[in-house]
Write a protein that binds this DNA or RNA. Structure first.
Lengths: 259, 259
DNA sequence: TCAGAAACGATCAAAAACGATCAAAACCAA
DNA sequence: TTGGTTTTGATCGTTTTTGATCGTTTCTGA
């Protein structure tokens, strides 16, 4: 008689752990220890494995689920440590905006920085799926058009099939896009398929696609594929962007600007 | 020294802090200290981190939020006086919402009160053109679909021809509408023609139209015509609503509820 | 303008969490 | 069973986080 088959138990335990963390959004090591009836050492090892898989993110004292709201914020926070870079990228992006342009602003913190810089530009028309960008521009400035669609809470953006209804009816001179992952082989990727759908739709409609991505996005691959890199006309990143990747992109015809 | 058992993970606590600051706009260190049950030193450290991320700005004594929020306009006294009535009207309106309904929420402060009451209703689908309603529901609750269109700054709603793109693609069991003027002869009127256009469009699409209008709206006529009263199925108002007008409306087939 | 009060930042010590290491236990194939 | 491998849990030194203290800065109102 086999009392315990540990080879099956370990992955099962990790799965339970993952579920626990996702349900609560966060979990402390001590809680997981008592819930799963194992030692803290094992909990740490499992968390390490789950982090390796990208399912969670470890923090001091426990872990945060990748699928939770908090994680998106934490992830954002992490990315926002590059706030200065984002500002520089956004300022560089401004150079590509002409008088009277009709531009699209994607969700994401880097693109949001552009919105902050457009306060006085009453000559522009801004099309966006980002509630945050809309809020930023709601006081004054450009004409604002929201594309509508289902609200994705995590990112505060409108995504999904419904977005194509309005996108089909507007002209977009330039689209300023954010991304979660940028990879030579896998192109642009993001977390949510519906978001990916809308992003790719926008890129098809826009005359020119400007991708804003700080250096840490380079080489990252997220879950849902948006498009390949050929859809992008201009990439704006910061000085830390891998030179080799930049060269490859330039060879492929992209204009690369490192702010 | 005895440290208390930490209830929160650091990122969790910072997230709560961020929300607190955003909700109130500003927060004092002492308040955050007692709200989060930590020392002032920790509060300061967290604020420092949040400032680094660009989410807040520290000021002497506390911090102010950098995250733009859709501000509720500072209502004049007249509107504030009607707040109680608006609440009652909104609560009455809840009775008309069934399980799993797909409902439309119009702009306007009265309708916004409904949004505030829908926090837990994950069974519903809310379609709206109001950024404020969307913001109210963006944290949790029903599925939210924004209809898109041009942003009208004053009302923070999406209006105009573009709105019909998505409205044509969704089912609306009930539409909860606000209005500026309600008049037996001139029907429903509002200030902006684009807004009127979208309102009438919604009313055509909805199976049932519920009009929310406090008594002050009775007899008022605004600039742009929305529709005549026959488009409305149910009127919800308050006790001060003119009895004579109510009688007339009932004769015309409207259901009238005075909350 | 100046003095008291409040808030601040730097620094330090305590406590909790962490990672590395190692031995014991469980597992697996012969 | 036996020998080798993997997994687990305990120990221990190190790191991180937190809260208190104290001198300094900033705010406020007389």
């Amino acid at each position: 008689m086999i009392l315990e088959v540990r080879a099956d138990l370990a992955p099962e335990r990790r799965e339970r752990m993952r579920i626990l963390i996702r349900k609560a959004g966060v979990a402390r090591v001590e809680d997981l220890k008592s819930d799963l009836k194992v030692s803290v050492a094992t909990v740490r090892r499992d968390l390490e494995a789950l982090e390796e898989e990208g399912r969670i993110r470890r923090v001091h004292g426990g872990a945060v689920s990748m699928e939770s709201r908090l994680e998106e914020e934490v992830f954002d926070d992490k990315a926002n440590l590059a706030l200065k870079e984002k500002r520089l990228i956004a300022e560089e992006a401004l150079n590509f905006i002409g008088t009277g342009d009709s531009i699209y602003l994607d969700g994401g913190s880097t693109v949001l920085e552009i919105a902050r810089l457009l306060a006085g530009r009453t000559d522009l028309t801004v099309v966006t799926n980002s509630l945050r960008a809309a809020a930023e521009l709601s006081e004054s400035g450009p004409r604002v058009i929201l594309i509508g669609g289902e609200l994705r809470r995590l990112s505060q953006t409108m995504v999904g099939p419904l977005t194509q209804a309005i996108l089909g009816q507007v002209r977009l001179d330039k689209a300023f896009m954010g991304t979660m992952g940028l990879c030579i082989d896998d192109g642009l990727t993001t977390t949510d398929p519906n978001e990916a759908f809308t992003k790719s739709l926008v890129q098809e409609h826009a005359r020119q696609v400007v991708l804003l991505a700080d250096a840490r996005k380079a080489g990252k691959i997220s879950f849902a594929r948006v498009s390949d890199l050929e859809s992008v006309d201009i990439l704006i990143s910061d000085k830390k962007f891998p030179a080799k990747t930049a060269r490859t992109l330039r060879k492929r015809g992209l204009k690369v600007r490192l702010a």
